[in-house]
Design a protein around this nucleic acid. Structure first.
Lengths: 155, 155
DNA sequence: AATAATACTTTGATTATCAAATTGTTTGAC
DNA sequence: GTCAAACAATTTGATAATCAAAGTATTATT
C-alpha cells in the first residue's frame, strides 16, 4: 500500500480530532461557554448571510431534521438563532443568526482562519496553491460519494 | 482577508462534515450497524498494533477519561475491545481490539485509504507531495496549539 | 507510615442522535 | 374545486455521548 496514502490519511484523522479538541477547549474557557462544540457548528452552518432552511442546514451538517430542530430550540432559547417562517411557502422555516449569534460566528470564523493562515504563512504561494488543489479534489470526491449514497438510499 | 485562506478553510469544514456523514451512512447499512460513528472512531484510536492506555486514547480523541471509560464499557460488551490490567502498574488499563474489532478496523481503514487514494490518483506525484506537506504543516501547528492550551489549563 | 499523586471508574445532569409519529401546508390528480 | 399524496418541520421516546465531580485502587513521595 502506498505509504503516501497512509501518511495523508493519518494527518487527516489527527487534524480532525485536534481541531475538534482545540475548538471545544477554547469554547469552554471563553465568552460563550454556554455552548457545546456541536452547537457552535450548527451556528457555523446556519451562517451569516444567506438564509437557510432547516432541511438545508441539516443536510450540510449530516444530521436528521429532527435532531436539528431540537438543537435549534436550544439555540433560540439561548438567544443565538432566529426562526422565520417563509412567506412563499408556509411549511418552510428559514434559520438566521441574531446579533449575538453573528458575533459568535465572527469569533469562531476568525479562529479557523487564523489556524489556516498560520499554516500557509509557512509555505510559499505555490505550495499553498497545491494544498488548496489537493483539498479541492478531496472535497469533490466526497461530494460525489455523498450523492451516490443518497441514490442508493432511495432504492 | 486572503481569499485563499477562506477557500482552504471552507474546504476543511465541508470535508470534515462530509467524511462524518459518509462514514455514518455506510456504517448504518453495513455489517457493523450495532456501532455508532463515535464508537467506530474509538476503535480506530485504540488501533491495531501497540497497546494504548485509557489516558492515551482519551487524549487522542480529545474527550475526557470518564467518557472513554463509558464508551469502552459498551465496546467490551459488544465484543470489539478488550481491557488488560498492566502488570507493571496495576492502576493502568491497556486497551486492545478483539478479532472482531480488528476486522472492523481493517474495513474502516480501507474506506479511509480508498478515499485518499481516489483523491491523489487525480494528481501527479509532485502535487501529492505538496498536499502532504500542507497537511503536515497544519498538523504541526495544531499540535503546538494543543500543547499551549494544556499549559494554560494547568495554571 | 502517612500523604499526595496518578489511573481509572462511577454517577448525575445535559446534550446529541435517530426513527417514527404528528401537524400544518402545498401540490397534483381527478 | 376537492381530496389524497407529498413535503417541511416538530415532537416524542429511546439510546448514546459528553462533562465535571466524587469515588476506588495503586504507586510515589516525604
Amino acid at each position: 500500500m502506498d505509504p503516501l496514502v497512509r501518511e495523508i490519511n493519518q494527518y487527516l484523522v489527527t487534524i480532525f480530532n485536534d481541531v475538534l479538541a482545540i475548538e471545544a477547549e477554547s469554547l469552554r474557557d471563553g465568552e460563550f461557554s454556554d455552548l457545546s462544540i456541536k452547537e457552535m457548528h450548527t451556528i457555523e452552518a446556519i451562517g451569516m448571510y444567506k438564509e437557510h432552511t432547516t432541511t438545508e442546514v441539516s443536510r450540510k451538517l449530516g444530521i436528521t431534521v429532527g435532531t436539528l430542530t431540537v438543537s435549534v430550540n436550544h439555540l433560540v432559547k439561548k438567544g443565538y438563532v432566529e426562526r422565520v417562517r417563509s412567506e412563499d411557502d408556509r411549511r418552510v422555516v428559514k434559520l438566521g443568526l441574531t446579533n449575538k449569534g453573528r458575533l459568535l460566528y465572527r469569533v469562531h470564523d476568525k479562529f479557523h482562519r487564523d489556524m489556516v493562515k498560520e499554516t500557509i504563512d509557512e509555505m510559499d504561494p505555490e505550495e499553498a496553491q497545491m494544498l488548496t488543489k489537493g483539498l479541492r479534489n478531496l472535497y469533490q470526491f466526497l461530494e460525489v460519494t455523498k450523492q451516490q449514497l443518497k441514490k442508493k438510499d432511495k432504492k
